[in-house]
Simulated assay, not measured.
Amino acid sequence: MKIKKVLRFLMFAAIALTGVSLISCLEDQYTPVPVKLSDVDGNYRARLVTSQGGKINEKLIDFNAKDSMITFKDFPAREVVKTIITDPAKADTVLAHLEKVEYKIKFKSKLNTEQNVIELALEPQLMAFQIPVEGVTKSVAVKMTAKQKGFYVGYDNSLRFAWEAEKITVGGTDITPYQTIKYEVPISIKN
């Protein structure tokens, strides 16, 4: 009999404690820290998703955003090289000897206080580098374009954007047939 009374008391105490703790949660509210245009500037680590046709490749990369410019010091040019050189063994040899390719994307930023984000109007630049093709070094020019805005999200301090390689020219000649290469940074973490 005493055990039943003790158990009832403990059950009542547990229910009362749970109710009090839930009431205290009602007063907790998330107050976002407002973003500023300068918040975009910084060094980032990102997951770059590259797709061409049905093939998808993911790679961790680092980049920098400063003064309305996103700069990749070592841009992964794998898909571009494999589009130019269709023999996989030769393409792998070229990739092994390819120097770092720097690539830059200009952007114009606009504050969206309602959603606590910074909208980025991307202006991808021409990517140019040299590769050896059949024993001759040739100039490669990749015309890039962006069809959607990028975003700096104040909630998690991340940068998200996408663009695509519209056309590849080697030594002044366009690569044909050509499938568009799409690049997407779905999430990047500010260092």
Rank of each mutant, 00 (worst) to 15 (best):
T50C: 04
T50P: 06
T50E: 06
T50F: 10
S51K: 09
S51M: 10
Q52H: 03
N57Y: 03
K59Q: 14
K59R: 12
L60I: 11
L60Q: 15
L60M: 13
N64L: 04
N64Q: 12
D67A: 13
S68M: 13
T71V: 06
K73T: 04
D74C: 01
F75A: 00
F75H: 03
F75P: 00
P76R: 00
R78H: 11
E79C: 02
V80Q: 10
V80C: 07
V81T: 03
K82Q: 13
T83Y: 00
T86N: 07
D87I: 08
P88H: 13
P88T: 09
A89P: 09
K90T: 04
A91M: 04
D92S: 05
D92A: 07
V94T: 08
L95F: 06
A96M: 12
L98F: 06
E99C: 06
E99W: 08
E102M: 06
Y103Q: 01
I105M: 05
K106L: 13
K106C: 11
F107R: 07
L111G: 09
N112F: 12
N112C: 15
E114Y: 12
Q115T: 15
N116H: 15
V117W: 11
E119A: 15
L122I: 09
L126M: 13
M127Y: 08
A128M: 09
Q130F: 12
I131D: 03
G135E: 08
T137N: 05
A141V: 05
V142D: 01
M144H: 11
Q148R: 13
Q148H: 15
K149G: 08
G150M: 07
F151D: 13
Y152N: 12
V153N: 15
G154K: 09
S158H: 07
L159Q: 11
L159Y: 04
L159H: 05
L159E: 07
R160K: 14
R160P: 06
F161Q: 06
F161M: 09
E164H: 09
E166P: 10
G171A: 06
G172L: 11
G172E: 08
